[in-house]
Structure formats: C-alpha cells, structure tokens
Design a protein around this nucleic acid. Structure first.
Lengths: 202, 202
DNA sequence: GGCGTAAGCTAGTAATCGATTACTTTCTTT
DNA sequence: AAAGAAAGTAATCGATTACTAGCTTACGCC
C-alpha cells in the first residue's frame, strides 16, 4: 500500500469534493464555481470528477447533504445540553456561528442554492434544511413561552424568522468587511439584542 | 411622432434596461442573467444592448445606481418625517420592505453583487449603499439612546447589523415560500420583536 | 426633402462551460 | 501473476456566453 495512492476510493473522493466546493465558495460566487475549478483544487483533471458524480448538480447535492447533516447535528446537540430555553437558543446560535466561521462558504452555498430558479434536488435540500431548522426553533420557543422564559405575546413564527435573519445579518456584514473573524466577535452582541427581543420583560 | 417609435433615445433605454434586469432578478439567479435575456425582455436583439452600455458590468452599475438612489431616498424620507426615533426606525423598515415587495429582484441583485469575488464597480456601489444605510441607522440610534427611547446599554453597531438582518430574514423566508406578498404580511410582526430588542425596558 | 447620426438587426467571433469519449494507469482479487 | 474493475488522463464535443463588425432603418434638423 503506497503512502500516496494516485487512485482513491469513491467515498474518499466524494468527501474531498464537498470540501473543495465549500472551500471555493468562501472565495467566490458559488454559482460561478466550475467543475474545472473543483477538480483543480483536488489535484485532478476536470473529467475525473464525473467518475464520481453523474453531473454537476449531484456534486451540489452532496454538498447540501454534508451541510445539512453536520449543521443540524451540531445545532441540535447544542440545544439538547442546555438547562433552559434561553440558553438553548444562545448555544444554538453560537454553534451555528461557529460552524459558519469554520466553513465560511456554507452560508453562501446555501443562499446561492435558494436563489436558483429551477427546482433542482440541491435546492430542495437547502429548503428542507432551513425548514427543519425553523421547526426546531419554533418548538423550542413554544416551550419557552409556556414556562415564562419568553414573552407570552411572542409570535414564534416571527421570532424564528428573525433568528435566521440574525445569522444572515452577520454573514452580510462579513461579506462587506471581507473579514470572516468578525462574525465570531460580533455574534454575542448581536444575539444580546435579539435575546432581549424575545425575552420576558422583567 | 409615431406612437410606437422603433428607436428610443438612449436615456429611456437605460431606464428600461434597469427595469428589465430587476424584473429578471425576481425570477432567476442574478448572476445567471444573460445579456440575451435582458434584451429579449426589452424587445431588442442582444447586440443592440451594447449600443447603450460598453459592457455587462456597466449594466449592473446602472442597476445599482438606480437602487441606491431610490432606496436611500425612500428610506431617508421615511425617517425624516417621523416624530421620534422608534417610529422613525419603524417607518424606515416598512419603507424598505415596501420597496422590496415592489421590486423583489432588488435584494437578490444586491446580495449577488456582494458575493462576487472580483472588486467590480457594481460591487463597490452595493457595498457603499449598505454602508450609508448603516451609518444612517447608527446615527438615528445614537439619538434614541440619548433621549431615552432606546436601551442605554444598546450597542448601535450590533443593532444596525440586526436591523439589516431582519430584512434579510424576511427575504430568505420569501425565497423559501416562493411568495413575495408574504414579506409584507410578516414584516410588522418581525419588526415588533426587533423593536423590543432595542427599546428601553419599561 | 435630403442628410447625418443615433439606434437597430444579422451574423458572426473567441472563450468557456458541462459532459463524453477513447485510452492508460492503478488497485484488488483470486 | 493475470485479469478485471476502478480511477485517472487528454482531447474534444455541442451549447452558451459576452462582445463586435458591417449593414440598414428611423428620427431630428435645417
């Protein structure tokens, strides 16, 4: 077994491909990522990519699959280990922010996919991810209202939209500044404002 | 003077072009809008477009110019006519939402421009628009803090980021639902949550 | 009414994209 | 060790892109 095998098994290449796409998305418009660019980053020729994927959209599907599994696992785990709803939301938020600052290409791929006109499988996966995310948030907030942690008159639909918007606002800010580390630094402050928005007024 | 002149003056065509791009952006990924598609919507051939613009980026520049002028004028006017800071922020917000629901392609063009890797003039215009927008917000909020309308410990930078994120969250929600009218309906509720987040606790 | 120019059309260009083909190399398996 | 499958390369395909050249039409002006 050589230490640098020139032929890797399919599964390893698929993960490598996902990493390459997310990597590239951090630097350029996701919809302008070419199969040639992906292959180049992997040290392959463009044609070799199609040994592992039937077409380009299948690549994006694999990316969305990876993102959905990782992000949801991380966020759900963060929420599960919290003693109350408010800290659950906060650790969820920070887990999300942590994920994004580790993989700055992720929110861009997601948004790029949602902007698509055609209903590709990859787009549907992006939609279902956010839908599940929202469902998790609304369930959590419903509990918070019931035990008095959150404002009794809070609309959980609106609060969930704003939660996701809070993340989006930070992402947009980092796009403006061209500085990814800024997200992490500014996240606690921005969440504090959000937190007061949903919390019970004492 | 015929009622349907086949040759229009340059200035009229430029405005028509901007409208066509924003129109198309409401239906498809802005970065995938081709010069052929723009021309087709205007009832022209693709080549004719280049009688009015030296290249494609100049078209996008014209779009950004139009957006910046219209949006800022509307938002600033809304803020100016308000009796206090909190209602100024609210009318600003609703003016912004109104603008977006009239022109759903606008936030998509904006975000698409920000995602660009190359520092095109159009991207710089998008960046300066948001920067001016943020400056307006921070100045307004500083006043609000001073006269006790807003929480004394509020960080205006964070609050401004969240304001823009609030809009973004609504836009993303409309992308998910594929329903533009939803933005307008959900906007007041989402802003109410934001408002409590920045307001003084009574 | 004719003349110049602005604005349009047709028909191209080179470049780039995703995808395919024909062939070669490498790994696994018996 | 031979064979076959898996994974790679190089070259090329057709389609699409932004942009241009050459010619024609329509409009404003005197």
């Amino acid at each position: 077994m050589s230490r640098h095998p020139k032929h890797l098994p399919a599964e390893a290449r698929r993960e490598e491909t996902v990493a390459a796409v997310i990597d590239l998305a951090a630097e350029q418009n996701p919809s302008e990522i070419t199969t040639a660019a992906i292959a180049k980053r992997m040290g392959l020729t463009q044609g070799a990519l199609f040994r592992h994927f039937p077409n380009k959209d299948a690549v994006l599907q694999a990316v969305m699959d990876w993102v959905a599994a990782r992000l949801l696992a991380r966020v759900e785990k963060a929420a599960a280990g919290a003693p109350d709803v408010l800290t659950a939301l906060e650790t969820m938020f920070m887990a999300h922010i942590g994920f994004i600052s580790e993989h700055p290409g992720v929110p861009r791929v997601m948004f790029g996919e949602l902007q698509r006109a055609e209903e590709t499988p990859a787009k549907r996966m992006a939609m279902s991810l956010i839908e599940r995310y929202g469902k998790l948030l609304r369930a959590l907030m419903k509990r918070g209202k019931e035990n008095g942690e959150l404002a009794a008159d809070l609309n959980t639909d609106d609060a969930a939209v704003l939660f996701i918007g809070t993340v989006q606002g930070l992402v947009m800010q980092s796009l403006l500044a061209g500085d990814v580390t800024r997200i992490r630094r500014q996240a606690p402050g921005v969440f504090a404002v959000y937190r007061r928005g949903i919390g019970a007024c004492k």
